[in-house]
Design a protein around this nucleic acid. Sequence first.
DNA 1: CTTATATACATAATAAAATTAGGTATAAAA
DNA 2: TTTTATACCTAATTTTATTATGTATATAAG
Lengths: 113, 113
Amino acid sequence: MVNDNKVIKGSLTTIILKLLEDNGRMYGYEMTKAVKERTNDSINITEAALYPALHKLVEEGLLTTETEIVNGRLRKYYSLTKEGKKETKAKVDALTSALESIQFILNPKLSNG
Amino acid sequence: MVNDNKVIKGSLTTIILKLLEDNGRMYGYEMTKAVKERTNDSINITEAALYPALHKLVEEGLLTTETEIVNGRLRKYYSLTKEGKKETKAKVDALTSALESIQFILNPKLSNG
DNA sequence: CTTATATACATAATAAAATTAGGTATAAAA
DNA sequence: TTTTATACCTAATTTTATTATGTATATAAG
């Protein structure tokens, strides 16, 4: 996942959860486009990383799916379960503070930590 | 590496390079303590992740080592090579912008991207 | 009408990176 | 004398992402 330059691994799951928290319901392909757009092309989630991650989240009970056919093509919508919503908050908080810590190491002057 | 909660992978190499850029010369154990201190215990680099990463950076020609005996114990100091200094700038920039992109997804209101 | 692009899902093999779980050894403090 | 801190290290496993494919429909371009 993430970035043409191959930085930042391990945050894909949290990003997925956050997208679903913000948008209620999304399908995989839509997520890749949303992240690309939101980050001005700097983060590019590959489908090969995304789909297995989504399947794992379903397995873990954090997401549920509904499949629909739209314009003759299949779409698999994902939403957060109750447990998924709780986990989202926890993971977003953890990732946010971890990012701040790393930024503090990289740029102590610009950081607020 | 990094954080008791297992977030943020893939940034260890950049963190090492940045520490050496700031401090000129450090040994492995010192790096783990420095990061722990700088981040108020939130980032905990494990030695099992650190040492292989250091060895790889030496292999790649980005670091050199000098071994000394201090207080009867071995210390292996690492410093940046010329190429290492160049790479540090590139990697710090790349990681910084990647962190910002992710933060923008997690907290659009607080971000400046 | 046919080819290319966009949409939309997916997996298999491999590689990269970190975790878990050890191991060695000296110095200093309890 | 046992524990804690210092200081290095690796092997096996797991996790996560990459590379490389594969299927299939809709739409736009030539």
